[in-house]
């Protein structure tokens, strides 16, 4: 297999990486046993499968793919919506399901100068504009749940999977924005120049994914 045929896949570290490699194994892609989510390496190669993985921050996955240093990527739809990169969105892998929601204190009622804290300013801005609501969006990088408690914002926009984090902070979900799962994305040129290998991997994954969901 020539070097040109190796596919580089950018993946977020942690849970998504674990689930995605599990999916690849189910699809019959031979991955070495030491390819696992608790690896501390930044690159992992699976020569037998002709794959190599870049382990990066989730929000950076579409960047690596858009610039072509990775041919493919696995990334949450939340990141794709927020980053708006020019990549192919090939397949819904159905892993790491969660949703994007508006949350606030249980007794929340409309305020005069609404403020929304979020790690996803683009998604929040677009959502409230589409609702015809005028809000100020405040970008935070973490601990978003704190914002309504201390009066920085009256609501937040964030990812909800089990709802436990919201509950623990005394918040409640107010509006459902959109469902989120991880997607397989591809670089525009790789999609063309390595189409055979990408198509092959796509079909293997698609057959595993389709089995898991009612068609």
């Amino acid at each position: 297999m020539s070097a040109f045929d190796t596919l580089t896949i950018a993946m977020p570290k942690g849970r998504i990486f674990g689930e995605a490699t599990e999916l690849l194994r189910q699809a019959g892609v031979p991955l070495p046993a030491d390819v696992s989510e608790d690896s501390r390496k930044l690159t992992v190669s699976a020569p037998e499968a002709g794959l190599s993985f870049l382990l990066v921050k989730p929000v950076d996955v579409p960047t690596y793919v858009e610039h072509g240093v990775a041919d493919l990527g696995v990334v949450g739809k939340d990141v794709l919506l927020e980053e708006a990169r020019d990549v192919y969105e090939l397949l819904d892998l159905g892993i790491s399901p969660c949703h994007m929601a508006v949350a606030g204190l249980p007794d929340w009622s409309p305020v005069l100068h609404p403020k929304v804290a979020t790690k996803y300013p683009r998604i929040a801005d677009r959502y409230f504009r589409e609702q015809g609501q005028q809000v100020e969006v405040i970008k935070l990088n973490g601990s978003v749940e704190l914002a309504p408690l201390i009066g920085l914002a009256d609501r937040i926009v964030d990812i909800v999977s089990t709802g436990r984090t919201l509950k623990e902070n005394g918040l409640t979900e107010l509006e459902h924005i959109t469902d989120i799962t991880s997607r397989l994305i591809a670089n525009r040129a790789s999609y063309r120049l390595k189409s055979g290998r990408i198509q092959d991997l796509y079909e293997k994954l698609a057959s595993v994914v389709e089995k898991g969901e009612p068609v």
């Binding site: 858009e66 072509g68 240093v69 670089n187 525009r188 040129a189 063309r192 120049l193």
Partner: peptide
């Protein structure tokens, strides 16, 4: 139509 070559990522 679009043409692709060795350039990283772009047409």
């Amino acid at each position: 139509f679009e043409g692709y070559g060795s350039a990283k990522g772009a047409y």
